[in-house]
Write a protein that binds this DNA or RNA. Sequence first.
DNA 1: TTGCCCGTGTGACAAATGTTACTGTGGCTA
DNA 2: TAGCCACAGTAACATTTGTCACACGGGCAA
Lengths: 211, 211
Amino acid sequence: MSEETIILKNTFPNFSNELIQEIETNSSFQYFKAGDVIMRTGQYIKSTILILKGQLKIYREGEDGEEFLMYYLQAGQACAISLICSTKDQKSQITAKVVEDVEAVTIPLALMDKWMMNHRSWYEFVIYTYRTRFEEVLEVIDNIAFRAMDERLEFYLKRHAKACGCKEINLSHQEIALELNTSREVVSRLLKKMEQRGLVQLHRNQIELKI
Amino acid sequence: MSEETIILKNTFPNFSNELIQEIETNSSFQYFKAGDVIMRTGQYIKSTILILKGQLKIYREGEDGEEFLMYYLQAGQACAISLICSTKDQKSQITAKVVEDVEAVTIPLALMDKWMMNHRSWYEFVIYTYRTRFEEVLEVIDNIAFRAMDERLEFYLKRHAKACGCKEINLSHQEIALELNTSREVVSRLLKKMEQRGLVQLHRNQIELKI
DNA sequence: TTGCCCGTGTGACAAATGTTACTGTGGCTA
DNA sequence: TAGCCACAGTAACATTTGTCACACGGGCAA
């Protein structure tokens, strides 16, 4: 068994052996560096990506370059949007940017329809992915629709901590502001209030989550 | 050919004859009255619904009973959420309320997995539904994330007009406020401004869209 | 008709958020 | 070391949105 097979099997444990085989023969391993933009709003989707390592940020672009965070993608996950785009040319509705260096498998669109029919484990993966992403997006809607900026910031920090698996968040106030579509000053103000309430501890270029 | 078969065929022209047959033998026709809540947040999904006639409103409930509109469903459409919920018990993330009296076909969940595999036209319908709903939700996110209330109101009115196919919108300011998660006074204020700009004409219980 | 409820309009004010401007501080590099 | 730059803190103010209070008028029912 090749090393790549082992990585694939470990990262996607629910895939059947036949599916793993198919992936190996039909797709290519690719590497992306932090900061790379893998998919851009308006681009045609030509393939889908299975992530083996690293982290991607999926966001919605505003007209003036705002970056509204939707969710993060990590090892064992795939971009929901690109999984379902039928055969005809479909434009991407979102932008995907690499947060941590990414190792991934790229699968041509043409195969996906076939796999949906022939591989039960692929079908289940696609359905599961779509459902969970939809739910995540609904939660995002809740936040912007029903909550004020202080709560949204708290939610954002917790989500970020969860995604990276640690309590130290290495982001500048400016970067956070961009993703919440507000301004740096507002973020600073709210973070300061959170610090007074003991929820976080602020350092230069780092926010330590205390909850 | 029964009358029901004809309605089904007309409303879902892409369904194959075999699929129509299966739907007829396995599902039940149901009727809902305006105001009925068909599916509620937190309820377990036991079946999916194909709409033959009428209109449904899909919205997200806030903690204090706010109703944040996501999209409308009409004849020929189905609730995306309920289409993909695998076999295990899945709770609904949204609430569906009848706007105009609805005639629908109810399909047990158990069949849907089977149909996905056996009926190409069902598979395509599900994929299409999911994709378009996802896109619609993304557009909603754009609106609340990037736009101020005046633009959101304008967007809302246009969407509503499009959904009902006419330029007269029979909603009270209060109802609109609920769906945009703001207050009646704000809606009144903004509508008045829109009237001054000539975009609408205001009547009692009716807003006439001039664009 | 009278009284009442609902929908609407509007002014005044409160609160949240966005904007501008300026300050300070740590770290890097010429 | 001096100068520069990115990041952070904060005051003051503008704007948007939410809230409260009250007035007006149409239509319906007693």
